[in-house]
Every structure is written in C-alpha cells, then in structure tokens.
Design a binder for these strands. Structure first.
Lengths: 200, 200
DNA sequence: TAAAAAATTAGACACTGTTCAATTTCACCG
DNA sequence: CGGTGAAATTGAACAGTGTCTAATTTTTTA
C-alpha cells in the first residue's frame, strides 16, 4: 500500500510511467491495463486515475516517453553516419527502433485520443522533436529547396517510411510475400529525394 | 429472442456481420462490442460466440467485408479514368474510401489477430483482391519492368499511400501543419513510378 | 413418436475503467 | 506541541467487456 511519504508527486508520476512502460512493452496496447500497472507499484488504481485523470492520460505519458527514446535512438544512429549515408541511417534507425520496441512503437499509433481530449502538449513536443530531427536531415540534402517545401517533403517521407514500417510489423508485407520492407522504404525515399534534386 | 427457425446458418451469419458493420461504423474498433451487436439483432452474445468462435472472428468477418467494399469502390473509380489518370484516380479513391468510412477503414489496421489465430482465408482473399487491383494498374504503367519488380513496387506504393492516409486520418499530418495529404501521396507515387520509367 | 443432435440462452466469471465517500497522511499554524 | 484543514490514497461499487458452460429449446434423424 503506497504511502504519501514514499514518493513525491513527480517521483510517483515517474514510477507509474515506468511501470506503465513495462506493461505496455509486455502486453501491448490491446491488453494494457491501468490496474496491472497499479498492482506492480503497490498503489491502488484510484491513485493512477488521480495522477493522470484517466487511462488515456497514462497512455499519453507512456507514448511521449516512447517518442523520446525513439528520438534519442535516431540521434545515436545519425552520430555514426556522414554525408548521404545519414538519410539511410535515419530510415534504418526508424525501422530498428520499431522492431526492437514493437508493442511500444505500435501503441503510439494504436491509441486514439478521446474526442474531448485536446492534444497534450508534452506528447506534441516529444513528437515534434522526432520529426524535427528527420526534417533537418531532409533539408540538409535539399539545399536548393525552399524551407517550406523541404518541410512538406520531410513530412511526406516520414509518412512513407511509417507506412512501410507499419506494414512490416503488422504482417501486411508478409501476406503479400514481401520480406524487405526496409529496402523498399529506402528506395522510395531515395527516389523522392532525387526527384527533388538531392545528390545521393 | 432469436429462434432457430428464423434464420438459417448463413442468414444468421450475414445478419450478425451486417449489425457488426453498423456498430463498427458508429463506435469504431475501440468501442466495438459483441454484446451490442447481439442486442441489435435480438440474439444473445453466446450465439455470436458460437457462430464466430470469438469476437476476433466477428471483427475479421467485418474487416473482410470492408476490404470488399473498398475494392469495389476502387474499381468504380477506375471505371471513369483512362491512361495515366488511372493511377491518380486509384490514389484518390484509396483516400476517398478511407475518409468516407473512417471507423471501418481504421478497424482494418487497428485489429490484431490473436497470436494463436492463423490468417483467416476469407480475409486474405479480400485483401488480395484489393492489392491485385492496384498491382495491375502499376504493372500497366511499367511495361518494361519485370513482373516481380512491378509487384514489389506496387506493394511499396500501397504502403506509401497507406502511410499518408493513416497520418491524415489519425491527425498526425494536422499536428505537423500539413493539410494536403492526398497531394503529397500523389507526388510520391508519381516520383517513384517515373523513377522506374513510367511516362506520367 | 422417440431419441439424438444441434442451436440458443441465461448466468456466472474474471476482467476492465471510472467514480466517490471514507480514511489516512501531511503541512501548516496557533 | 497539538490541532486543523487540505491533500493523497484507498476500497468498494458500478457498468461495462469477452468468454465459458450447464441447461434449455428447437430441429433433425431414426
């Protein structure tokens, strides 16, 4: 039974999210349970509801964390690549994170905000960091492109890679007899960038 | 209270799926309920379980129907287009169906088969019909491409459009400040096809 | 018509998220 | 130091969910 003195508010929040990350990784979004999270940290469900409002709030916090880990993972991938190889490293890193964190990655896209819930700022920020990393690399290989156009292309390429990654993890590609989702994504990205004047 | 004489097996199955389609369209996958379906047709939940094994079986049947409607919708789009415009009509039709059937379209990708459930044949067939329609059009604009390569490109372009469509409906593009998801998808498809020698 | 088989149901079960009154804990202040 | 008020935490209740099973009803078969 959790005691107030055991954890300050922020500590408790972090404790819940950490346990939530575990449950999400193990069970996936479909079987995620706030009660299971409560059980693991020795608090009651009510406390979680009190801290996060409802289960959606907790899932949002978990997904924001996932975005953060993902962004860090991409930065690590980039740190080892130079020149035109950076784009390829980015796509590879995108896939690698998703495959290494299937349930958590999927949860980002499986969870839908309740209609009455406005976009939580922390989630938007974490997401923006990720897209920012990618957009910067796209802009770098398109030096002659107006910034707005480069941003649009970046967003479109994120959607492109997402589609491939999503099909790969969900088994859609497997049904079609495709095994090299990453290779296909790399090709599409390269083609689009070349069409916009990139030298790859 | 449903009586056996009221509906033969196939009729009952169709009755359940039809009601299921309604519930899915109204409530979406997250709030889909087999009990609600049972209530609407005047049978008990047990009957649905008896007919479809479990709720996943019913969702699979609903999603297979959705694939069928979607395929028919694409064929209708194609019937009005000629030449290079056919590809654009296909992408437009892809988006149009998803937007006009948000919850049902999303349910296709939100539902995950239980690990112990093998891919149901009817679902695979319905899906193959859809991808077949698209693959044929891609192959038609790539006359010099080996069949296998054209198929790979088709699958990749489906994933590309899916990514854009998914981001559009989930609001991801909106967060990034992008409003023309369809236009972006059209551009990426055209670029990839041109890179493979298509004359668009 | 009687017996066997199949369909259907009601009810129980173990879950879920949410809510709320009651309790416990804490910080503050006289 | 003791008391008071506010905040945190809980347990219990509630309305849902999918799944399962024993009992019942209906149909088919013999």
């Amino acid at each position: 039974m959790g005691r107030r003195s055991d954890h300050r508010r922020e500590e408790l929040e972090a404790l819940i999210v950490a346990a939530g990350e575990q449950v999400m990784a193990e069970a996936g979004y479909a079987r995620f349970s706030a009660r299971e999270v409560a059980k693991r940290i020795g608090y009651s469900v009510g406390t979680i509801m009190h801290v996060f409002g409802n289960v959606d709030g907790l899932v949002v916090a978990i997904n924001a964390r996932t975005f953060g880990l993902w962004a860090g993972s991409l930065e690590a991938s980039l740190a080892q690549a130079a020149g035109a190889e950076r784009i390829r490293a980015l796509v590879r890193g995108y896939f690698a994170f998703a495959e290494a964190n299937r349930n958590r990655w999927s949860a980002i896209y499986e969870h839908r905000l309740p209609p009455d819930m406005p976009m939580p700022e922390p989630l938007a920020i974490a997401r923006a960091r990720l897209t920012g990393i990618i957009a910067a690399e796209i802009a770098a290989v398109l030096p002659t492109e107006p910034a707005r156009d480069a941003a649009r292309l970046a967003h479109s390429l994120i959607a492109t890679v997402h589609g491939h990654c999503s099909f790969a993890l969900a088994g859609s590609f497997a049904i079609m007899g495709e095994s090299d989702a990453l290779g296909l994504a790399q090709s599409r990205v390269a083609e689009a960038l070349r069409a916009h004047g990139a030298d790859l």
